[in-house]
Write a protein that binds this DNA or RNA. Structure first.
Lengths: 67, 67
DNA sequence: ATGTGACTTACAGTCCGTT
DNA sequence: GAACGGACTGTAAGTCACA
């Protein structure tokens, strides 16, 4: 499984565990709702800056989302 | 310190510890030497696909390079 | 052996929508 | 609530010559 897909699955797991919708998380991270959807499905190739913002929005260390 | 700079410093540390030049690592990762230079100095904002290739070239888990 | 500026092309990321 | 599409803009990918 490639890193984008793994990242997406981790984001989804943490988001759902935190009880947020994609739209809520997208707003917190400052990205578009449709983009969050793509990221979670692993069909996008996000930059480190976006990884950093999503991690912050989820209140988790960025490295955890790649593990 | 932002994630791009942290990533760059980690890449440099691991590369030097492995006894490689920027050019050797760039070749292994399939990027230009000047690009590797930018990444190590944190002046680029690489995507997860690039992170994945560099991690593989360094024979290390991608998450380790964000930690 | 590395830092840097300039450059073109590919795609990251947005915003409108529909299913 | 989320998957998916189309059209758009900004910026990363990727390289090169030179310092």
């Amino acid at each position: 499984m490639d890193l984008c897909r793994r990242f997406g699955l981790n984001v989804k797991n943490v988001r759902v565990a935190a009880g947020h919708t994609q739209e809520e998380l997208a707003d917190l991270a400052g990205v578009a709702r449709s983009y969050m959807s793509d990221v979670e499905r692993g069909v996008r190739n996000p930059t480190l800056k976006v990884v950093e913002r999503i991690a912050k929005a989820l209140d988790i260390h960025p490295a955890k989302l790649l593990g």
